[in-house]
Design a binder for these strands. Structure first.
Lengths: 227, 227
DNA sequence: CTATCATTCAAACGTTCGTTTGAATAGGTC
DNA sequence: GACCTATTCAAACGAACGTTTGAATGATAG
């Protein structure tokens, strides 16, 4: 009847997923080979194909394992905020923080490899391979819709076009911060000890994003419409 | 004496660079093979190794061709602003626009493949391969230093740590916008005709970034320091 | 003990990779 | 004409890739 064995049955899968997370982050999806991967995980070369079917399927599994719960957390947090508000509109910064905190919790989760995934995720948004981009798009779509309507309700005076663009910018800020922190240091000077303190980072990101989101409409743009 | 022939001597190199720009953007550095590359350029497979030495050297050449003049433009624009100001501090948004405009001019340069490079560049900031990141870092370093000191002079009351972080965020916003526009559409709704109008995009980006840069210091962070 | 099952393993599959080679080609100089 | 140099070309190199195979392994059930 295949009862659950004494040692966890998925140890191999988990080891593969952890190794994949780390090596995909370090070398990219094409750059990390099955042989590197399985060697790091301490499993046989054929194990990935046996347990996941193919390398592409493994990539999907890597994202599903982290992203599904992450977006569920986001939606739950937004639900909680809206329930507390009892119909009153939410503060934009609170909505932003509801979106951010799930990402930043993962940055801090060093022990379980969450930081590896954070960096991997930050890079995945700009991945050239179409299947991966489509996958990411599909996994984010529901949460994005919810946050878009929440922000639209919080900022009724902001034209929908502008809101979409500013969400785009906010997402870019987050994505780059997740991907590049401690890898690229284009601008020298950030104190290393602050770099992964999730609370400090969330404050900084939320402050920056809120200000950008609430910025007055671009004057030149209005002139351009009037002209 | 090897006088310049009638037909431009570098046609082959240029064709290779153009093809590389496009295919690196579409498939990544590892995903675009020499055979794809040379086929697209209409040259022999051995031409890349003959003219550039290796694939890695070609990647370097792709970045140098565009990035060196781009950062030179940025510095020249900043020089011009500072000369005009005659010692008075510059407006932060003007500094930001001096940085942005070179990127956005390239987005609009469709004919010469500038847009291909823009998207490629946006992705390169989060590239896993170390040599590429180091290359990018080296090429940006001088311009970044100059803009950092310019912004520090324009915002003397902003702590240096915060400035560095906010520059980081601004850079992320730009990088993601360059990389992801028209590829990922995580947030549906942006009008396609606006997506590549450089003036509109510059206004939107400058507005967002300026607001973020000038945001009040994060309250929670200050509380944290006091505690 | 025997049969059954999921899993692991070493080995090999065919393909594609970046690079190298040596001959062929073309243009310029004397 | 002969000579030189730069470039192009078809072909091949060894290495690494993702995947498949069929036998070994070990725990569970009858």
């Amino acid at each position: 009847m295949n009862l659950r064995p004494l040692k966890p049955p998925k140890e191999t899968q988990v080891r593969i997923l952890d190794a994949a997370e780390e090596l995909f982050m370090q070398h990219g999806f094409e750059g990390a080979s099955m042989r590197m991967l399985t060697a790091r995980a301490g499993v046989n070369l054929a194990a990935v194909n046996y347990h996941f079917g193919s390398k592409d399927a493994l990539i999907e599994a890597v994202f599903h394992r982290r992203l599904d719960p992450m977006n569920a957390q986001r939606l739950a947090e937004l639900d909680r905020l809206e329930a507390e508000a009892e119909g009153k509109p939410l503060a934009p910064e609170a909505i932003i923080r509801a979106f951010l905190s799930a990402s930043l919790r993962m940055v801090e989760d060093v022990r379980n490899g969450g930081r590896n995934f954070s960096r991997l995720l930050g890079r995945a948004y700009t991945e050239p391979a179409k299947p991966i981009r489509q996958l990411i798009g599909r996994m984010y779509a529901p949460a994005m819709e919810r946050f878009k309507t929440a922000l639209a309700r919080a900022l009724p005076e902001l034209p929908r076009d502008e809101l979409v663009w500013r969400m785009h910018f906010m997402f870019g800020t987050l994505a780059y911060t997740l991907a590049a922190t401690d890898t690229v240091q284009l601008i020298a000077g950030a104190k290393p000890e602050d770099r992964y303190d999730a609370r400090v980072l969330e404050d900084r990101l939320a402050t920056f994003m809120s200000a950008g989101l609430l910025a007055p409409l671009p004057g030149a743009h209005q002139v351009r419409i009037a002209a």
